[in-house]
Amino acid sequence: MQIFVKTLTGKTITLEVEPSDTIENVKAKIQDKEGIPPDQQRSIFAGKQLEDGRTLSDYNIQKESTLHLVLR
């Protein structure tokens, strides 16, 4: 499925993911596309910070959902 990741600069990245993917996985995909190390990424969805060990389905993130990426 496709999800979108919006950065603070307003750029939107499209990722191909599975509901079973962990947040860690997703951060690795963002690193592949953007070169941002996962330890600098904070992902926010529906106002909640997403934890690395959880999966997209844990957070009820579905296709075409938009995550927000904040850098630390």
Results as ranks from 00 to 15, higher is better:
Asp39Ile: 10
Phe45Ile: 09
Pro38Asn: 09
Val5Cys: 03
Ile36Gly: 08
Glu16Thr: 12
Lys29Trp: 04
Ala46Arg: 13
Gly47Glu: 08
Gly47Ala: 04
Lys33Asp: 07
Lys6Arg: 11
Asp58Pro: 00
Ser20His: 11
Leu71Tyr: 10
Ile61Ser: 02
Thr55Met: 09
Leu50Phe: 03
Gly35Ile: 04
Gln41Asn: 07
Leu67Ser: 01
Phe45Pro: 04
Phe4Leu: 04
Val5Tyr: 02
Asp39Ala: 11
His68Gln: 11
Lys29Met: 12
Ala28Val: 10
Val26Lys: 00
Lys63Asp: 13
Thr22Ala: 02
Gly53Asp: 12
Glu24Tyr: 14
Leu67Val: 09
Gln41Ala: 10
Lys6Asp: 04
Ser20Thr: 12
Gln49Leu: 15
Lys6His: 15
Thr66Glu: 07
Phe4His: 09
Lys11Ile: 10
His68Ile: 15
Gly10Phe: 03
Asp21Gln: 03
Leu50Arg: 00
Ile13Asn: 00
Gly53His: 14
Phe4Asn: 04
Asn60Met: 06
Lys27Gln: 04
Ile44Asp: 05
Gly35Lys: 06
Gln31Trp: 15
Pro19Leu: 09
Lys27Gly: 03
Lys33Glu: 09
Leu67Gly: 01
Asp21His: 04
Pro19Ser: 08
Leu8Tyr: 12
Lys29His: 04
Arg54Trp: 10
Ile61Thr: 01
Gln31Asp: 06
Lys33Gln: 12
Ala46Ile: 07
Ile44Arg: 04
Ser20Asn: 12
Ala46Tyr: 15
Thr7Phe: 15
Ile3Glu: 01
Val17Cys: 04
Thr66Trp: 06
Val17Pro: 00
Leu50Pro: 01
Gly10Pro: 00
Thr12Asp: 02
Glu24Val: 07
Ile44Gln: 05
Ala28Arg: 15
Thr12Phe: 09
Pro38Glu: 08
Leu69Val: 08
Ile13Arg: 00
Val26Pro: 01
Ile30Leu: 07
Phe4Gly: 02
Leu67Cys: 01
Asp58Gly: 02
Ile3Arg: 01
Lys48Met: 14
Pro19His: 05
Arg54Tyr: 12
Thr7Ala: 04
Leu56His: 02
Glu18Asp: 12
Thr12Val: 14
Thr55Ser: 09
Lys11His: 10
Gln62Ala: 10
Thr12Asn: 03
Thr12Arg: 08
Glu16Leu: 13
Lys6Asn: 05
Pro37Asn: 08
Glu34Lys: 05
Gln62His: 11
Asp32Val: 12
Ser43Gln: 13
Ile13Tyr: 07
Gly47Trp: 06
Ser65Ala: 11
Thr22Met: 06
Gln41Phe: 15
Tyr59Val: 01
Gln49Gly: 06
Phe4Glu: 03
Asp58Cys: 02
Lys63Ser: 14
Phe4Ala: 03
Thr22Glu: 01
Gln41His: 10
Lys11Tyr: 11
Gly10Tyr: 03
Glu34Met: 15
Gln41Glu: 05
Tyr59Asp: 00
Thr55Trp: 03
Pro19Cys: 06
Gly53Ser: 12
Glu64Phe: 14
Ser57Asn: 09
Glu34Arg: 04
Gln40Val: 11
Pro19Met: 09
Pro38Leu: 15
Gln31Cys: 11
Glu24Leu: 14
Met1Glu: 02
Pro38Lys: 14
Ser57Ala: 14
Gly53Arg: 08
Asp58Tyr: 14
Gly35Gln: 06
Val70Gln: 09
Thr22His: 02
Arg72Asp: 11
Asn25Met: 15
Pro38Trp: 15
Ile13Leu: 08
Asp32Trp: 09
His68Val: 13
Gln41Met: 15
Gln2Glu: 09
Ser20Asp: 11
Met1Tyr: 13
Glu24Gln: 13
Leu71Ser: 10
Gln31Met: 13
His68Ala: 04
Lys63Thr: 12
Pro19Asp: 05
Thr22Leu: 08
Ile44Leu: 13
Val70Arg: 08
Ser57Pro: 02
Leu67Pro: 01
Lys29Tyr: 07
Gln2Asp: 05
Ile13Met: 04
Val26Cys: 02
Pro19Ile: 07
Leu15Glu: 00
Asn25Cys: 09
Glu18Pro: 02
Thr22Phe: 05
Arg72Ala: 13
Thr55Gly: 01
Val26Ile: 12
Asp39Asn: 12
Asp32Lys: 13
Glu24Gly: 12
Glu24Ser: 12
Asn25Leu: 13
Glu64Lys: 08
Leu15Asp: 00
Val17Arg: 00
Leu67Lys: 00
Glu16Arg: 08
Asn25Pro: 00
Asp39Leu: 10
Asn60Asp: 10
Lys27His: 09
Lys27Phe: 10
Gln2Met: 12
Gly53Thr: 09
Val70Ile: 11
Thr14Ile: 13
Glu24Trp: 15
Pro37Phe: 08
Leu71Lys: 07
Lys48Asn: 10
Ile61Asn: 01
Ile61Leu: 03
Asn60Val: 03
Glu16Ala: 08
Thr12Met: 12
Lys33Tyr: 11
Lys27Ser: 05
Thr55Ile: 05
Phe4Lys: 07
Lys33Pro: 07
Asp32Cys: 08
Asp58Met: 03
Thr14Lys: 10
Pro19Thr: 08
Ile30Ala: 06
Pro19Phe: 06
Gln62Thr: 14
Thr14Trp: 06
Thr22Gln: 02
Ser43Leu: 15
Leu71Val: 12
His68Leu: 15
Ile36Ser: 06
Gln49Asn: 11
Thr55Ala: 06
Gln40Met: 13
Tyr59Arg: 00
Leu69Arg: 00
Asp52Thr: 05
Asp39Thr: 10
Asn25Lys: 14
Val17Leu: 05
Leu67Gln: 00
Ile44Met: 11
Gln40Ser: 10
Gln62Gly: 12
Gln40Ile: 12
Val17Gly: 00
Pro37Tyr: 09
Arg42Trp: 15
Tyr59Asn: 02
Val5Thr: 00
Asp58Gln: 06
Glu51Lys: 07
Val70Asn: 05
Ile23Lys: 00
Tyr59Leu: 05
Leu8Glu: 13
Arg72Leu: 14
Ile13Thr: 02
Pro19Ala: 09
Glu16Gly: 05
Lys48Tyr: 10
Glu51Trp: 04
His68Met: 11
Ala46Gly: 10
Ile61Lys: 01
Asp52Cys: 06
Ile13Gln: 01
Glu18Thr: 13
Ile36Thr: 08
Leu56Ser: 00
Val5Trp: 01
Ile13Gly: 01
Gly53Leu: 08
Glu16Tyr: 13
Leu56Asp: 02
Ala46Leu: 12
Gln49Met: 14
Asn60Tyr: 05
Leu67Phe: 02
Ile30Cys: 02
Val17Phe: 04
Glu51Tyr: 06
Lys63Arg: 10
Asp32Arg: 11
Asn60His: 09
Gln62Glu: 10
Ala28Tyr: 11
Thr14Ala: 09
Arg54Ile: 06
Thr9Gly: 13
Glu18Ile: 11
Val26Gly: 02
Glu51Ser: 06
Gly35Pro: 05
Ser65Leu: 04
Arg42Gly: 13
Thr66Val: 13
Glu16Ile: 13
Lys29Thr: 03
Gln62Phe: 08
Asn60Thr: 03
Asp52Glu: 09
Glu24Asp: 08
Leu69Met: 12
Thr22Val: 04
Gln40Leu: 12
Phe4Arg: 06
Leu71Thr: 10
Phe4Asp: 01
Arg54Ala: 08
Ser57Ile: 07
Lys48Val: 14
Ile36Ala: 07
Val70His: 08
Val5Ala: 02
Asp21Asn: 06
Glu34Ala: 13
Ile3Asn: 02
Pro37Glu: 08
Asn60Ala: 08
Lys6Met: 09
Pro38Phe: 14
Leu56Asn: 01
Asp32Glu: 14
Pro38Asp: 08
Leu71Ala: 11
Lys29Asp: 02
Gly47Met: 04
Lys11Cys: 06
Ile30Gln: 01
Arg42Leu: 15
Gln62Asp: 08
Thr12Tyr: 10
Tyr59Ile: 03
Ser43Ile: 15
Thr14Leu: 08
Glu34Val: 14
Leu15Asn: 00
Pro19Val: 08
Val5Gln: 00
Leu15Tyr: 00
Ala46Gln: 14
Arg42Met: 15
Glu18Gly: 06
Thr7Glu: 04
Lys6Gly: 03
